[in-house]
Computed example of a mutant assay.
Amino acid sequence: MDWDDLRIFLAVARTESLSGAGRRLGMDASTIGRRIARLEGAVGAALFAKTPQGYALTAEGARLIAPAEAAEQGANAAAEAVRREAGLTGQLRIGAPDGCANYLLPQVARDLCAAHPGLDIQIVALPRVVNLTKREADMAVAVSPPDTGRLTVQRLTDYHLHLAAHRDYLRAAPPIRDLADLRGHRMIGYIPDMIFDRELDYLSETGVESAAITSNSVSVQMQAIRAGAGLGIVHDFAIPFAPGVELVLPDRIALRRSFWLIRHADDRASRRLSLLADLLAQGLRAEVARLESQLRRT
């Protein structure tokens, strides 16, 4: 059985579509379809059933997953052995919530690429949990540890959040001396039904029941705060990127959360990915500490 056909099979199984597999592999959907048909001919059974939601594995397809993933691990190990002498090279795709992806990972990726010029780093910013089982990324940063799946979890670092607003908003708005004063102010936060992790439910910390301006993106919320649209809970590490944004009631509203590094359990055997995970963890810890220390000095 051809490994390349198995590689295509896994891509379709993980994306549940020919076009999605094609985008992941850099191939057109018609070629993907022909290769799947060839593989089905080789095994003598249909591997996928077309449904309104996409391509679902048949019973025969589900049985092929384990041997296909074993072949994938073997191919990855062989490729890793070939490039080991050349240092850390090749593609690394990192999934992360958009706060981490926007304010932390660009600097970490810069330093990793400077130290290892052969690396190709892709940052996938998603307002949801990255699905490593479907190989949406090689590893992912999350705001809480998963409780299902064949995954390994490593605590990276704590980070802090505070209520903040732009100084232009604060000059024009009624004074804020206590939590009760917030009820007379415009709040900015997450769209309630799009909060994908309980750790992101910040608004309850303020005692205010609803926000006037909401987004599923941390970056959009920060831009609204920078525009003087109101008050919101923001990451301390993001404030150095937002001139004019100031803490509000820092002694009354102070949150602490954690970042976690998530990897597929099968990747523990990869020396390359383990080294990259260690370097990523070190870089994120250092960058959170650096940016939060800037806020403390102001």
Rank of each mutant, 00 (worst) to 15 (best):
D4F: 14
F9D: 02
T15H: 03
E16T: 00
S17Q: 02
S19Y: 02
G20V: 01
G26Q: 09
M27E: 06
S30A: 06
I32H: 10
A37Y: 03
R38I: 08
V43R: 09
G44V: 03
A45C: 04
A49L: 11
P52W: 07
G54F: 05
Y55I: 01
A56F: 11
T58V: 11
R63H: 07
L64V: 08
I65M: 11
A71Y: 00
R83M: 12
E85A: 15
L92W: 08
R93S: 12
A109C: 00
A109K: 01
L119H: 05
I123C: 04
N131T: 11
L132A: 06
M139H: 07
A140S: 12
S144Y: 04
P145V: 01
P146H: 02
P146F: 06
L151C: 02
Q154G: 10
D158V: 06
H166T: 10
Y169N: 09
L170M: 14
R171I: 11
R171P: 07
P175K: 14
R177E: 15
A180R: 12
L182H: 13
G189Q: 07
I191D: 05
D193V: 01
F196W: 08
D197Q: 04
L200F: 04
D201I: 02
A212L: 07
A212F: 08
S215G: 06
N216S: 06
N216P: 07
S217Q: 05
S219H: 13
R226Y: 08
A227W: 11
G228F: 14
A229V: 11
L231W: 14
I233Y: 10
D236Q: 05
G244Q: 13
E246L: 09
R252Q: 13
L255V: 07
L261V: 07
D266M: 04
S274W: 09
S274R: 14
G283Y: 03
E287S: 05
A289F: 07
S293F: 06
R297F: 04
R297V: 10
